[in-house]
Amino acid sequence: MKPFRLLLLAPLCAATLAAAAPYKADVAHSNVTAVFKQMNVPVEARFKTFSASLDYDAAHPEAAKAQVEVDTRSLDLGDPEYNGEVAKKEWFNAAQFPKATFVSTSIKPAGAGKLAVSGKLTIKGKTADVSFPVTSKAEGGKPVFEGQLPIRRSAFNVGEGEWKDTGIVADEVVIKFRVSAAK
């Protein structure tokens, strides 16, 4: 009788393991941007290079884990000269800190299609605890996660020296993301 029960449970265990399989960002259908104001004019700049991995099961979102890495040298402000400037020491110091990272510490259901995400955000060697809402949905059989994370650039020493003054470039930055996940 015991071997028979194990045979019956095998497909259920396999389905559970498959549902919790890790996902990676489908970068062709995903994006990460930074939105800020320069001289009170809104600017949205895209990070061209990033990766995201996610262990996610829609039936058990509280067991999910997420990790994101963004190449700070890949911020595209639409002009090669500006792109070079933000990689310098005063801004991202990309030579010393080539990656910004987010690692989740908690993902909780927050209503239909909504998650409350908390974790550690590290930019330019400075780490802060952050929390933000995320919406989740399925598109073409793939999970898609969208959200916005407001931060203050000064908390991460982004904009040092003369750029510490927030009169030209505002302190408030919103990191917007859309991650289409694929196995």
Rank of each mutant, 00 (worst) to 15 (best):
M1Y: 08
K2D: 14
K2C: 08
F4H: 11
F4G: 01
F4N: 06
R5W: 09
R5Y: 11
R5E: 05
L6N: 12
L7D: 00
L7Y: 09
L9W: 07
L9V: 11
A10K: 01
A10Q: 05
A10L: 15
L12T: 14
C13V: 15
C13A: 15
A14T: 04
A15Y: 03
T16D: 12
L17A: 14
A19V: 07
A20E: 07
A21E: 08
Y23L: 00
A25M: 07
V27Y: 00
V27E: 01
H29T: 08
H29W: 07
V32W: 01
T33L: 05
T33Y: 02
T33H: 06
T33C: 02
A34S: 11
V35C: 10
V35H: 13
F36P: 12
F36Y: 15
F36G: 13
M39E: 15
N40F: 00
N40P: 01
P42I: 07
P42A: 09
E44N: 12
R46Q: 09
K48L: 02
S51M: 05
D55P: 02
D57I: 05
D57L: 01
H60K: 03
H60A: 15
P61T: 03
P61N: 04
A66K: 05
Q67I: 10
T72V: 09
T72A: 02
R73F: 00
R73K: 10
E81D: 10
E81F: 07
Y82E: 08
E85Q: 12
E85A: 14
V86C: 08
A87F: 07
K88N: 11
W91S: 02
W91C: 00
N93K: 05
N93H: 11
Q96K: 14
F97T: 03
P98G: 02
V103S: 03
S104G: 09
T105Q: 13
K108V: 08
G111S: 08
A112R: 01
G113H: 01
V117Q: 12
S118K: 15
K120T: 08
K120E: 11
L121T: 02
L121M: 12
T122I: 09
G125Q: 09
T127H: 01
S131R: 08
F132G: 09
V134D: 10
V134M: 13
T135L: 12
S136E: 10
S136F: 04
G140V: 04
F145T: 04
F145R: 04
E146T: 15
E146C: 05
G147Y: 05
Q148V: 14
Q148I: 02
L149W: 06
P150N: 04
S154M: 13
A155W: 08
A155P: 00
N157Q: 12
V158Y: 07
G159D: 10
G159C: 12
G161S: 11
G161P: 07
E162W: 03
D165H: 08
T166Q: 14
I168R: 02
V169W: 04
V169K: 06
D171C: 11
I175C: 09
K176A: 14
K176R: 13
F177H: 05
F177Y: 09
F177S: 02
F177C: 04
F177V: 07
V179D: 00
S180I: 02
A181R: 05
A182Q: 15
A182T: 12
K183F: 03
